[in-house]
Amino acid sequence: MSNSQTSKSTPLVKRGLAEMMKGGVIMDVVTPEQAKIAEDAGAVAVMALERVPADIRAQGGVSRMSDPDMIDGIIKAVSIPVMAKARIGHFVEAQILQALKVDYIDESEVLSPADYVNHIDKWKFDVPFVCGATNLGEALRRITEGAAMIRSKGEAGTGDVSEAMKHIRTISGEIRALAAKSEDELYVAAKELQAPYELVREVASTGKLPVVMFVAGGVATPADAALMMQMGADGVFVGSGIFKSGNPAERAKAIVKATTFYNDPDVLAQVSRGLGEAMVGINVTDIPAPHRLAERGW
């Protein structure tokens, strides 16, 4: 298609798209109309799914990949990248999403897992993957399987940011601890993290993950988004927080601004005004452990 030595779907190209999304907000949408609202509000990408996590939580049942017609409709509606979710371990859903030409696949704990042992072998795909993680070992295992982007999991569909906070603190803290270790301690560190030694050594020497890390799961307000950015996130996913709120378009715009100007309390005060009702929310501590989505994935 272009030059003689052209190569597609390389790790650089896969990770590169996530680099371009940094400092941005990725929004969950369930219809082309919502996708358009998200794009107009300044979303850097949209996540196409059948039901937002708050509804998945409320309605229960098995949650699966979205209808291809819906995904097609969303791809047609917007010019920004479109992501879509496949169940953990469901490599055929991923094959279908790749055939639909989505820009990124989220192998997501928000859907019902299809395999309680293995995740998808993401190296086999041309399309890049983002995966959730609650700690450094989990993030590195996903990267080993081929993930080109990580999002800390938080607890989706709650509007409670405390789990997102816990996960980004855990991952950042473990990276700092690794960076402080001497070289001969890294072998045991790799064993403890249950991650490959080479990757552990890379993180220890660079002091960061080799891929972009966004935060997800419970971000509902501009202040939540700015909190995650101040904690060192590269960007934020907002799921139910926007379209389960009183004024989605305004809230979406406000969260985009807060993500850029996360360090400026005057801007944050201004964009936090007059947004109407936030999503109702559930305290994570009120959710019995078996119903916590973040515990899916291993």
């Binding site: 298609m1 272009s2 030059n3 030595q5 052209t6 190569s7 597609k8 779907s9 390389t10 650089l12 190209v13 590169g16 798209l17 791809i75 990248p81 479109v82 790749q98 030409k101 989505v102 820009d103 990124y104 041309d126 399309v127 890049p128």
Partner: peptide, 9 residues
């Protein structure tokens, strides 16, 4: 889309 992203010289 992203599947058509590439590296070249």
């Amino acid at each position: 889309n992203q599947l058509d992203s590439f590296e070249t010289d």
